[in-house]
Amino acid sequence: MSAQTFTEANGSHPELPATKLALWLFLAVATMLFAMLLSAYLVRLGFSEEHALPKPNLLWFNTLLLVFSSLALERASRGTARRAPALWLVGGALAVLFLIGQLFAWSELAQAGYFLATNPASSFFYLLTALHGMHLLGGLVAWTRTASCVIQEGRGESRGEAVRFAPASSTRVKLELCAFYWHFLLAVWVVILILVWMTT
């Protein structure tokens, strides 16, 4: 990352890449967004007596998918250059499956007669899952771009010894950041799930 060459020249904070700081800031923004929405949800529930919502069992399965997706990306970011590409692809595929699973959960709700405007719980559930899904989609864009780097480097390493990525490698930073973002979205999803479970 050129930002790093600069910070070295500047001598301010070479140990913290600019992208990492930017990601943390973005997570602060996203935290704010979901916190606002969840507070609004809890406040809004107080104004209606009717807030039933069927909870498709599929949601548990989806949660497992996201957990494994997160784990796979984490392993990839720590793993050797040879193993990383496969883990990386598996992690991303699981995330895609999670999104598809969420769509099936929506259709189950719709078949049960719960639409966006049915009651506050359904309104918020659709809205929260949609925003969470869009954040994951954004993550998948970054995942795709990182994937090409991982595969290239993995190919280079595959003939030689199984070594870890060099610590300063820009690919390694990208993997770490992407995985970290995944953990964040997993945490957000778990919070959403718990709150919805406890209040409907």
């Binding site: 602060a28 923004v29 606002m36 609004a40 966006l116 405007a117 506050p120 309104s123 809205l127 925003l131």
Partner: peptide, 28 residues
């Protein structure tokens, strides 16, 4: 701005759903 804009975004999206899809986030 980073910490305040999300509130506008959330409020705006809910308002938009109230306008487009008949939800009742803010409408009694």
């Amino acid at each position: 701005a980073l910490l305040a804009f999300p509130a506008l975004f959330v409020g705006g999206v809910m308002l938009l759903l109230d306008s487009l899809f008949g939800t009742s986030f803010f409408i009694p």
